[in-house]
Amino acid sequence: MIELWNALPVVIQILLKILAILLPLLAMVAYYTLAERKVIGYIQVRIGPNRVGWRGSLQPIADAVKLMMKEIVIPTKADKGLFLMAPMITIAPAMAAWAVFPFDEGLVLADINAGLLYLLALTSLGVYGIIIAGWASNSKYALLGAMRSAAQIVAYEIAMGFALVGVLVAAGSLNLGAIVAAQEGHLLTWFWLPLLPLFGVYLIAGIAETNRAPFDVAEGESEIVAGFHVEYSGMAFAVFFLAEYANMILISALSALLFMGGWLSPLPASWIGDHRLLSDGFHWLLLKTFFFMFVFLWLRATFPRYRYDQIMRLGWKVFIPITIVWILVVALAVLYELPPWWSV
């Protein structure tokens, strides 16, 4: 089997690896939409979709078929080329970011040195799709949504970047695998504890970056209908939807990787012994990612939407000062080798 794999040309090998990442990701995105409707349904004492398939389990497929059958309406005087390109620009970075994501020790498509920077750069590209969609639609509400979204994403990107600077100071590396290796130990040696303020900022900024409730003013259905994608229908709309959920999964997986020890087991090595399920592995990463994905839904069902000026205040006047102060604290802790995290 391994010989057969090695006999394949490198390009085919890489393509197969990409497929092995993207297909489960897209399946996860599809079922995340169902999970969202179910979870929020139960939180609001409803049942959620339960007609298509066993307890609604085929609902995402029915939705996909419905959206594919629909017409893509292009508004008059819209910039047709950009209008059709915007959804693709939105989804491409959300998919490409997974290239440097390590799923287990050494199990990564591209093990590059500057992995964290690459992720930051790609997540910052997602905003283009939204701005272009808003402008190309030639519609007031879409432009308003794009405007809100651009200001919000630029504001929260800085806080998010600074939170990641704290992580890289703590780990001493930009490589995602090395960052996980630096958290080796047990639940209390993971970075969430020494970087607690940064962890909070990262998570909240991640929710704001993905334009999710309570930071979903870019969509704001009660004020600007659906914001930047108000003019989109059919598959073009579905692609925006896919990108949003792919980004949510990415942020969840990154939170698990950078702050919650990735694939590391929460138990110290001496307690586990030879137990396969309790020791480090992909299943821990998956479990942690699922937890953060649930938090996204939980927050949406719990909080009312933030007012726009308060979002700006939170981003610029609260998060950025917090992160700057805590980077200094972390740097000092690393310098003076504060146990148990940095005592070598």
Binding site: L117, L120, A121, L122, S124, L125, V127, Y128, I131, A150, I153, V154, E157
Partner: peptide, 12 residues
């Protein structure tokens, strides 16, 4: 960094 700073922030 060119992508991050120029494309991701300045050009936006």
């Amino acid at each position: 960094v060119l992508v991050l700073v120029y494309v991701g922030a300045v050009m936006v």
